[in-house]
Amino acid sequence: MNYIPKIPLAEWTDKFIAYLTLHCSDTTQSIADFLEKLILGIKNFLVMIPPELFIFIVAALAWWLAGRRMGIFTLIGLFFVYNIQLWDATMATLAMIISAVLFCILLGLPLGILAAKNKTAYKIITPILDFMQTLPAFVYLLPAIPFFGLGVVPAVITTVIFAMPPVIRLTALGIRQVPEELIELGRSFGSTFFQMLLKIELPLARSTILAGINQCIMLSLSMVVIAAMIGAKGLGGDVWKAIQTLNMGMGFEAGVAIVILAIILDRITQSLGKSK
C-alpha cells in the first residue's frame, strides 16, 4: 500500500477536535454546568428520600405494573442493596440514568418522528445511528473530556450518544408501522399535522416507543461502568475501583447491585409498554 500515502484521518480528527475545543469550549462549558446542576439535583432529591420509603414506593409500583412477584423481588432486592451499603452509589447511578434517558427521549423522540415523516431525514439519520452504535464507546469518551471536563457530565453525554439510537429507531419504526388506513382516516377527517401525531401516530406507536425507551435504559446501565472511567461515581465507580485494586468482593457487590437495578428498571418499563 505504498503507492497511496496514508490518509491522515487521525491528524484531521485531532485538528478538528482542537478547533472545536478552542472555539466551542465556552458553550460546552455552560452546557456542562447546567447538566451538572441537573444531575446533582436529581441525585440529591433521590438521596433525600428515606431509603425505606423509596423502597416501598418502588416495590408498590413494580407490584402494580409488573405483578406480585416483581413487587416482592423489588422489595428484597432494594433492601439488599441498602443492606450492603451501596444505597448512595445506587442513587447516584440512578440519577445518571434518569438524566441520560431524559435527554435521550427529549432528543430522540423528535428525531424519530422526523425520520418517520421525512425520507431524506431518514436517509441521513440512519447511517449516523449505525455509526453511533458501533463506534466503541471509549473512542468518544476521550474527546468528551476537553469539552465537558471530567466527572458525571461527560459520562451522561457519552451515555446519551450510546443509548439514544434505539429511541430514534423505534419511534420511527412505530410511526411507520401505523396502518395506512388509520393515516387515511386521520387525513380524510381533516386532522392537522400535530393532530395526526398526537391523536393517531404516537398513541398507536406507544408500545414500540416504550420498547425503545426500555432498550435505552438498559444501554444506559451498561454504560455505567465505562463512564466511571472518566470520573462518574456511583455503582460503576465502585466496580472500576474494585478492578483497579483487584478487590473481587467489592466488585461483585457493586455488580450485583447493578444487576438488581437493571432487572427492576427493565421489568417496570416493559410492563408500561404492555399494559392496556
Binding site: 396502518p179 388506513e181 388509520l182 387515511e184 382516516l185 387525513r187 380524510s188 377527517f189 381533516g190 386532522s191 392537522t192 393517531i200 398513541p203 398507536l204 406507544r206 392496556k276
Partner: peptide, 22 residues
C-alpha cells in the same frame, strides 16, 4: 382550506373499518 372542507363536508368509511384500537 382542504382541512376545513374535509372536516365539514366529507366523511369517509373504510374497508377495514379503520377504528383506533386505543
Amino acid at each position: 382550506q382542504l382541512i376545513e372542507i374535509r372536516r365539514k363536508k366529507m366523511g369517509m368509511v373504510f374497508q377495514r373499518f379503520a377504528l383506533l384500537p386505543n
